[in-house]
Design a protein around this nucleic acid. Structure first.
Length: 878
RNA sequence: GGUCGGUUAGCUCAGUUGGUUAGAGCUCUUGACUUACAUUCAAGGGGCCGCAGGUUCGAGUCCUGCACCGACCACCA
């Protein structure tokens, strides 16, 4: 037999539970089963390439807590799981594999490459789903969706076609964010701004008619000068007013360019003259359109300079930059170089510097969609928590810009547009339909080719809340479970995803897809840095599950969740310890509660017949229950956990169980059992594994706890009076313990104690509970007196209206004790005096609410009385 | 540059519409094998509530300014 009596083993229990859940499928949601109605959450679909990290762990724990809670409340709770095909990210993974094999996607060809991708998805695509599963997520796993499932792809095409029909999709030549590494367009949201220290190069452009004179322009990207087709100045700028229309010669290229006037130019910045590169800068692009300038593209899609770059062709854009700067310097055309901090756009997938690039892309006209979402928002949908994000959300809807939805990659939903030889477009659901359209147009069959681009990943994700439920088909589930209830997600994707989902929901379902959006914090390390692989500061949730258990991971994470979550490995000990405490307290109760006592329900008990400690714990339990339910409803999970932690550990275990140890009373058994059982239920959404295991052990058969009803508050047991009475008792015990420690009384030293109560009621309570005080404070002898007698050489204490004396013989240092009590008296007097001052203040008496004044009066009286008692106690010490 | 947060014990955070002597967990110190639990129990230490003003009888809480940290947004070359 091991010396360690019992230690909770999470691994064993969690494995057992997972197996049971897999077998019984208790999380399956069926429409119209409960009269409480539907409760729906759709998972923010993680990337198929994903591996569980702390952010996922947090996000999914939050969802699981609410889903389990609602299920216990009797709702038809559906938590829809699934993954996102994550276009660029997934393609990158497989392309890396190809590189290792010494080949490329181009060499493989589109069809073969797609096969490789699907193959990869088949073998690795479920990794994160399995990991979420391990976390205890109670998703309806049989419904797991993938954004490239056949049905889902049909929904994507349907949306494209409907938007196209409404004139909300168009194609055009625009400056877009181009990632030369991924070789695809990026939406504005996919190009991240980062502050970067760069240079501002000042370049002199000579006049055609007077090569000795120059106009100086400034740029952060000197290589783009190769594509300049004008120099712009502000029309109101006195310095340049007369030069408008003058011709300059572009150095290195020797192209003649004109000085134009445009209000966009800021007179204060740089030299006040701007080089204009319409094909490589969004502002310049706009200016180019306004002034009919030539658009000269100087770059290949991979960032290498092309024929238009003259002698620099074939160079990478950054090599080209160096070469251009060097050449200008040699020509004496480089006026100066300033260091310049500015913001640069990076590809959010691969961190390459984004190139503004001119190309033909598909766009969605966002204004009409955004306006509808805005209207819904003004009507309160969705509610966003925390509230401060509402403004951010609203602003984006107001200032929304068109969405570039085409991507030049292969992994994704291919744009449902077909072309004939002449370039006529046919927008259709599939190849067959396109052929039909072409037939109708041409009067004969013609060869069609489909657009080679695919759609932005978010163009499928924005349909997630309804496409997962079978849209465009009108299924029973779609009708019942849509709209969903709450969306839990990170604030980073409020625009990418949340706002667009609202637009799609309003547009295609006529209803905002969720009533609440809860934006949670980022998981950070102890130093406040984002967890990331590259920083090496990431804590792997799987490692934590292995070492501490999934319950511990969940519990600690939620307990520590504020705005952002700062977490280090040792934090998980708290969760582990809590599960262990629960395990052991349960073992203790199992040992001490007879089968007969277990049959009783709380509702069978009559508060009148119960002893004080039972009435007390029941009252405390009811208040904890009310607080926890409310906190969960309001998404304050860390508070809910805190209440549970405090109630279960400090109140139930440390006080109640200690009080009733050895009490041979059927009612006490019933109460300790019921309170524990219901506490386990309350804890279940947070720590599903250990709670369900214990619950099953208690009940004597395997139970699925999330299907058991959530406990109800029974007001018969709410009793403030009894809480106060026990407060006196626990206070007394604390004071005596304190005294023992203070005077170094050994546990084996049995002491006797004399209590003096100033009211009959208190005396009665003391007498009824003498065993509790005696046992917990380890006192043998208790005497009760209704009024003080001359007692000498005593330790004393006062709690509420009860005073106690412990005759101590020579156990204590009387001087030291005198000092201690004297200090305490001083403290009381000081506090009383402060209140006295307040009460004497005219303004206070006149303006403060009467109940506050009354409270202060009472408080002062108490303090004074206590002080007097303590002074008497000092006399007793002689 | 714009918008919004944060600043309370050594650390992580609570602190509800202004109202007792500002709380909890962890850490730290001391003591304890007690009818489950040492992943335990008990006791204790530790706070100009970021700074400076203002409103008020009364401010951690409301207002103004400042400092520092952070997030998001953004086409000044």
């Amino acid at each position: 037999m091991s010396e360690i009596a019992s230690r909770y083993n999470p691994k064993e229990v969690e494995e057992k539970r997972l197996k049971l859940w897999d077998k019984k499928k208790p999380f399956h949601a069926t429409a119209n089963k409960s009269d409480k109605g539907a409760f729906t959450i759709v998972i923010p679909p993680p990337n198929v390439t994903g591996v569980l990290h702390m952010g996922h762990a947090l996000n999914n724990t939050l969802q699981d807590i609410l889903t389990r809670y609602k299920r216990m409340q009797g709702f038809d709770a559906l938590w829809m799981p699934g993954t996102d095909h994550a276009g660029i990210a997934t393609q990158n993974v497989v392309e890396k594999q190809l590189v290792k094999e010494g080949t490329t996607r181009e060499a493989l060809g589109r069809e073969k490459f797609m096969e490789r991708l699907w193959d990869w998805k088949q073998h690795h695509g479920d990794t994160i789903i399995n990991q979420l599963h391990k976390l205890g997520s109670s998703c309806d796993w049989d419904r797991t969706r993938f954004t490239m499932d056949h049905d889902y792809s049909e929904a994507v095409n349907e949306v494209f076609i409907r938007l196209h029909e409404r004139g909300l999709i168009y194609q055009g030549q625009y400056i877009i964010n181009w990632c030369p590494r991924c070789q695809t367009a990026l939406s504005d949201e996919e190009a991240e701004h980062k502050d970067t220290n760069g240079n501002l190069w000042h370049i002199k452009y000579p006049f055609k008619d007077n090569p000795e004179q120059f106009v100086t322009v400034a740029t952060t990207r000197p290589e783009t000068m190769l594509g300049d087709t004008a120099v712009a100045v502000n029309p109101k700028d006195e310095r340049y007013k007369n030069l408008i229309g003058t011709v300059l010669v572009l150095p290195l290229i020797n192209r003649e360019i004109r000085i134009i006037a445009d209000d966009f130019v800021d007179r204060e910045f740089g030299s006040g003259a701007v080089k204009v590169t319409p094909a490589h800068d969004p502002n310049d692009f706009a200016m180019g359109r306004r002034h009919n300038l030539e658009f000269i593209n100087i770059m290949h899609p991979n960032g290498v300079l092309n024929d238009n770059a003259g002698q620099y062709k074939g160079m990478d854009r950054f090599a080209g930059r160096k070469a251009v700067v060097k050449a200008l310097e040699e020509l004496g055309l480089l006026a100066k170089i300033d260091s310049h901090a500015h913001s640069v756009r990076y590809c959010y997938r691969c961190d390459t510097i984004v190139e503004p690039y001119l190309s033909k892309q598909w766009f969605v006209k966002m204004k009409p969609l955004a306006d509808k979402a805005l209207l819904a928002f003004k009507n309160g949908k969705p509610r966003i928590q925390p509230k401060r994000w509402e403004k951010v959300y609203e602003n984006w809807l107001v200032e929304t810009r068109d969405w570039c939805i085409s991507r030049q990659i292969w992994w994704g939903h291919r744009i449902p547009v077909w072309y004939d030889e002449k370039g006529n477009q046919f927008v259709a659901r599939n190849n067959k339909e396109a052929q039909k359209l072409a037939l109708a147009y041409h009067g004969k069959d013609v060869e069609l080719t489909q657009d080679s681009d695919v759609l932005d990943t978010w163009f499928s994700s924005w349909l997630w809340p309804f496409a997962t439920l079978g849209w465009p088909k009108e299924s029973r589930d779609l009708k019942y479970f849509y709209p969903t209830t709450t969306l839990f997600t990170a604030p980073e994707i409020i625009f990418f995803w949340v706002a667009r989902m609202v637009m799609a929901g309003v547009e295609f379902m006529g209803e905002v897809p969720f009533s609440d959006v809860v934006l949670h914090g980022t998981v950070r390390d102890a130093k406040g840095r984002k967890m990331s692989k590259s920083l090496g500061n990431a804590i792997d949730p799987l490692e934590i599950i292995e070492e501490y258990g999934a319950d511990a991971l969940r519990f600690s994470m939620i307990l520590n969740s504020g705005q952002d979550i700062y977490i280090s490995k040792d934090k998980f000990e708290q969760g582990r310890n809590f599960a262990n405490k629960l395990w052991n307290a349960s073992r203790f109760v199992m040992m001490n509660v007879s089968p007969k006592a277990r049959k009783a329900e709380l509702s069978d008990l009559d508060p009148e017949t119960l002893d004080l400690s039972s009435r007390w714990i029941l009252s405390r339990y009811m208040s904890a229950l009310a607080q926890v339910s409310k906190a969960i409803e309001e998404y304050r999970y860390s508070e809910a956990e805190n209440v549970l932690y405090e109630f279960f550990w400090a109140t139930y275990c440390d006080w109640y169980l200690e009080m009733v140890k050895g009490k041979d009373d059927l009612n006490v058994q019933k109460v300790s059992y019921q309170v524990l059982l219901n506490t386990i239920k309350m804890l279940h959404p947070f720590i599903p594994f250990v709670t369900e295991e214990l619950y099953s052990q208690f009940v004597g058969k395997e139970k699925i706890l999330t299907l058991e009803p959530w406990p109800l508050v029974d007001n018969r047991f709410v009793d403030e009076g009894v809480e106060k009475d026990i407060g006196t008792l626990t206070g007394l015990v604390g004071a005596i313990r304190n005294a023992r420690a203070q005077w170094n009384v050994k546990p084996q030293d049995q002491i006797s104690c004399i209590f003096v109560a100033s009211s009959e009621k208190s005396l009665g309570i003391l007498k009824d509970n003498s065993a509790i005080i005696g046992k917990i404070a380890r006192i043998c002898d208790i005497k009760f007196l209704s009024q003080p007698e001359g007692v000498t050489n005593c330790a004393t204490g006062v709690v509420n209206d009860v005073k106690f004396f412990i005759p101590l013989g020579n156990l204590i240092d009387l001087d030291k004790e005198k000092k201690r009590i004297t200090k305490e008296v001083e403290d009381q007097d000081k506090a009383a005096k402060a209140i006295e001052g307040r009460l004497a203040n005219e303004g206070f008496v006149r303006k403060a609410p009467p109940e506050v004044i009354e409270k202060e009066r009472q408080r002062m009286a108490e303090l004074k009385a206590k002080s007097i008692e303590l002074k008497k106690a000092i006399e007793c010490l002689v």
